[in-house]
Every structure is written in structure tokens, then in C-alpha cells.
């Protein structure tokens, strides 16, 4: 341990880039990225569940507006959505004087809104697929028991749909983490923003970006591990029996 410590101190002694200050920037960036991604995923998930149920409804006036929403947000790049929500709204006359400006003034909330709407659109479609794939037999059995529509959703359709959606949703979480790298274009100091800052300051692209890539890898590893654990717990009944 002692040896490792001296080795580490020596390693850091003759570098000009990774000082306490720049490490601080990275730490700050990590906090911003984590906040953005976690919040947008959480809110997105809460939005996606009712939207997915609506999207699988047979009533056209419920189904089509939701389809339009997911189509627009899956059909345009997240970067464009972010630009519209951050820079575009500025051109609405007098928006600075309304309460909306409290939300839109700082870059954090516009980015959060863009990320949330985007991930909610993808998650809606993931869940809709899972709901649609509910075996007919399960639904017929629920009807035979005399369950109401709501009870059937709560007890039969959604629990099995969540399980089926889990692997695809894990991917969406990782995509969202990586998509959050564009937050730095609206001046948020996220992980990528910190890396770009260090790069521009020291003209050291390799050091700055390799370091941040390593952090993203660690985060992705954590997400993968979490979902593997969840899949093991929740999808145990699908494992081949020995």
C-alpha cells in the first residue's frame, strides 16, 4: 500500500495537466452528468409508463397523438432538440418576462427537458413493444377470472411487460449516458465539458479525452452490472432449468 502510494504520487508529480484543479473540474462534471442522466431517466420513466399504455390503446385519439410525439422525438437528433429548446426559445418575443424564463435561463433545465422528452419517447416505444408481446393466453386467463381492465394491467400485463423490456431498457440507459455528452454545447460543465476545457487549456487531447473516456467506461460498467443483477433477479423464471 505504501509502495502504491509513493508510486502514485510520483506518477502525478511530473504532470502539469491533472492537478487538483482539473481533477476538481472532472469531479464537478461527473456530478453534473450524473444529475442530468439520473433525473432525465427517472422522469422519462414515469412519463413513459402511462404513455406506453396509451400507445397500446385501441382508441385512435389516445394512440395517435402519442405516436406523433414518439415519432418526432425519435425521428430527430437529440442535439437538434437541445438546440431548439435552449437557443430556439430565445426568439419567442417577451419570453424573458414570463415565469418560463426562470426555467429556461440557466442551461441545466433546458438540457434536462430535452433529455427527458427524448428518453421518454424511446422508453415509451420499448414498453409498448413489451406490452404488445404479452401472450394472449395470459390476457384470456385474466378475463376469465373477471378482472377489470385496470386490474388486468396492474396484475398481469405490466409486470410481465417490465420484465421483457428490461434488457432493452438497460441499453437505453447506457445510450442516455453517452448522449448526455452533448450537454457541453449549451455550456453545461458535464464530464465532456470538463474534458473539452482541459483539452483547450493544455492542448492535450489524448490526456483529456482518454481520462474522461475511462470515467464513462466505469459508469457504463456500473450500469451493466446493475441491469445484470436485475435481470438475474427478475428474469430467473426464464432461465433454462437444470
Amino acid at each position: 500500500m505504501e509502495q502504491l502510494n509513493t508510486w502514485f504520487t510520483q506518477l502525478l508529480a511530473d504532470n502539469e495537466i491533472f492537478t487538483a484543479q482539473t481533477i476538481g473540474y472532472y469531479a464537478h462534471g461527473l456530478a453534473n452528468t450524473a444529475q442530468l442522466v439520473l433525473l432525465s431517466l427517472l422522469i422519462g420513466l414515469m412519463l413513459a409508463v402511462p404513455l406506453a399504455i396509451g400507445r397500446s390503446s385501441s382508441r385512435p385519439w389516445v394512440k395517435w397523438p402519442i405516436f406523433l410525439y414518439t415519432y418526432v422525438f425519435r425521428g430527430t437528433p437529440l442535439l437538434i432538440q437541445l438546440y431548439i429548446i435552449y437557443y430556439g426559445v430565445v426568439f419567442v418575443d417577451g419570453i424573458q418576462d414570463t415565469w418560463l424564463w426562470l426555467i429556461l435561463e440557466k442551461p441545466f433545465y433546458p438540457a434536462l427537458i430535452a433529455f427527458t422528452l427524448n428518453t421518454a419517447a424511446y422508453t415509451t416505444e420499448i414498453f409498448r413493444g413489451a406490452i404488445k408481446a404479452t401472450p394472449r393466453g395470459e390476457i384470456e386467463a385474466a378475463r376469465a377470472y373477471g378482472m377489470s381492465q385496470a386490474k388486468m394491467l396492474r396484475r398481469i400485463v405490466l409486470p410481465s411487460a417490465f420484465r421483457r423490456a428490461l434488457p432493452a431498457y438497460g441499453n437505453e440507459v447506457i445510450f442516455m449516458l453517452h448522449a448526455s455528452a452533448i450537454a457541453s454545447v449549451v455550456t453545461i460543465m458535464d464530464l465532456t465539458g470538463a474534458a473539452r476545457f482541459v483539452y483547450a487549456r493544455f492542448y492535450a487531447p489524448f490526456d483529456a479525452f482518454l481520462f474522461v473516456a475511462a470515467i464513462y467506461l466505469c459508469l457504463t460498467f456500473g450500469i451493466l452490472y446493475l441491469f445484470r443483477y436485475l435481470e438475474k433477479r427478475l428474469l430467473a423464471h426464464l432461465k433454462p432449468q437444470t
Binding site: Y87, V90, Q96, E105, P107, V185, T187, M189
Partner: peptide
């Protein structure tokens, strides 16, 4: 921190 001076001017106009 902005990538271009244009983005910065836009945000200045916006009052940010």
C-alpha cells in the same frame, strides 16, 4: 464557455 462567438452573442441577446 461557448464553442463559437455566435452562440455567445445569442445568449447575450437572450439575457443569459
Amino acid at each position: 464557455r461557448y464553442s463559437t462567438a455566435d452562440d455567445m452573442v445569442l445568449d447575450m441577446d437572450a439575457g443569459r
